[in-house]
Amino acid sequence: MLFFLITLVSARLDGRAETPFDPCRSCHEIGPGAKNRVGPHLDGILGRQAGSVDGFAYSKAMLKAGEDGLTWTAETLSEYVSKPRDFVPGNRMSFRGMVDAEDRAALIDWLRENSGAKPADDVTAVSPAPTVSSDMASIVLQTEGDPAYGEYLSTECVTCHQASGHADGIPSIVGLPRDYFIRALLAYQSNIRDNEVMKLITSSMGNEEMAALAAYFGSLSPN
């Protein structure tokens, strides 16, 4: 699994031990001072109403599930994580699912122990941009994206990635943080993330195109 591989690599670089949470870490923060990233922060996740973190751009489906009474417990989380697309149809979490019940139990045990911390005072604050100057992503991040150009380029993306932000087998790319979006494109371009279509699509993209797309999709909200 893509996210899993990426996380393993970053975990080693960080010197962190492997945990059941690793597949989640590329999108979710947890622990003291956690903020929203691609997904909402997960401090206090157990017992939390679905779709209830302030300032996170949830799908309408997840907001409605919360309003209809969905609360994250060991049971509901396990069911959700087994196949997110089926449990809350129309939600925008791009995760195919954790098939093995033991893996899910281990993840939920880990969350029980690690989700008790206090999140950041302002969970919506965007994490600082990477500072390593040789990093390709930081070069693209310094390019100002033209949202109008991005809107034109986006017409190629939305044949597969739904403009509504729904994820039905293809990840949602609506409302993503700029740095995450650009890093993902670079990872496809350099084959760190393995997908032929995305490698092809990104092969003709320069800094300007990536920055424009990040600016445009970052400006959209899921519905």
Binding site: R96, V158, T159, C160, H161, A163, H166, D168, G169, I170
Partner: peptide, 14 residues
């Protein structure tokens, strides 16, 4: 295959 299902939903909504 999963990707093709996603594409179908995508192009139809497009």
């Amino acid at each position: 295959y999963e990707e093709s299902l996603g594409w179908y939903k995508g192009i139809v909504s497009d």
